[in-house]
């Protein structure tokens, strides 16, 4: 029996890294969204915060969407 420890290690490292990265980036996006919605609710007095929050949310969600697209690419054999 030959156990592929390096493959197992790779799965562990990649899974940990990707999961944490995606969730952190998504959380930052949610943070931006919260800032945007919060600023808008307070009556739009702080236009800067609102736009900045929106931009942050947009960027972060876009990055996550890219990861999802790569996931679909990995799942669908026709793309390979």
């Amino acid at each position: 029996m030959d156990l592929d420890w390096s493959a197992l290690g790779q799965v562990t490292a990649v899974s940990l890294g990707v999961t944490v990265a995606v969730v952190v980036v998504f959380a930052l996006g949610v943070l931006g969204l919260a800032r945007y919605e919060g600023a808008r609710e307070e009556g739009g007095a702080d236009g800067g915060t609102s736009t900045l929050g929106m931009a942050q949310a947009g960027l972060c969600f876009l990055a996550c969407a890219a990861v999802v697209a790569y996931g679909i690419y990995l799942i669908v054999p026709q793309f390979h």
Partner: peptide, 9 residues
């Protein structure tokens, strides 16, 4: 997210 990454990797 963790499930997806582990399954795919």
């Amino acid at each position: 997210t963790a499930s997806t990454t582990v399954i795919l990797t």
